[in-house]
Design a protein around this nucleic acid. Structure first.
Lengths: 125, 125
DNA sequence: CGGCATCCCTTAAGATACTG
DNA sequence: CAGTATCTTAAGGGATGCCG
């Protein structure tokens, strides 16, 4: 067992919860959560719309990531009980509080993607 | 991890690179990267300092995460060739451009950690 | 259409031991 | 002190098939 100085109990999540940054990353830092939230900022989306927007994601992962966002209260899932089925995903009010962060990340990503590539040149093997 | 060897031809990571949000998450979204950057905002840190601050992280993971941050140009690694060895980690200028994002994530985490717990109560039906 | 269940492989991550 | 190396386990994730 791991030596846990301070005896905080044995919840491995505690370390993350203790740091607000990690808590936030826990909500938006999943493999696809960032993009999903980002695209939801542009309006309601259906399941297959996401699949078109993110060709790399599988149904399974899309479901899992959306479920986690739903569980975290970030995304609302509206089911229309009809044939063929229709499910719409949207940001909750709570989810919208993330918009400033996502926007900042978007801006940073756009601005520094190139510069970061330059940096990498100097640290190549 | 990100493949730097070739171009973006059939790189499955391409989808992520295509979205600036995901690019940013790729840099700061690693399991421990957020906390590491966050703590580096408070000043230079040594290897074992991190281990004290983040009791849950293993040497191995700490090394790997720091190396990735270094590779991405976010963190500078200063090695003092002496006995006993001394290595200091600090944010690069590039790394400092992330500070606004980390701060925003910290604020959001602090503010909404509690509210999110409430949200979960309502989504248990 | 929008899933979920299953199988299976790959990658991430932990434990431990050892080193410059 | 600040790591590597190695092994093992846990989690992530793809492919496929079925179902409401």
């Amino acid at each position: 067992m791991r030596d846990r100085k301070g005896g905080f109990g044995n919840d491995p999540e505690r370390d993350k919860q203790a740091c607000p940054v990690e808590y936030t990353l826990d909500v938006i830092g999943g493999k696809w959560k960032g993009v999903l939230i980002y695209h939801l900022m542009g309006g309601t989306k259906r399941f297959n719309e996401f699949r078109k927007i993110c060709p790399g994601i599988t149904q399974r992962m899309l479901t899992l990531q959306l479920r986690e966002l739903e569980k975290d209260g970030v995304v609302h899932r509206e089911v229309y009980h009809q044939v063929p089925p229709k499910v719409e995903y949207s940001l909750t009010e709570f989810g919208r509080t993330l918009i400033p962060i996502i926007n900042l990340m978007k801006d940073w990503g756009k601005e520094y993607r190139d510069k970061q590539l330059e940096v990498q040149k100097y640290s190549e093997d």
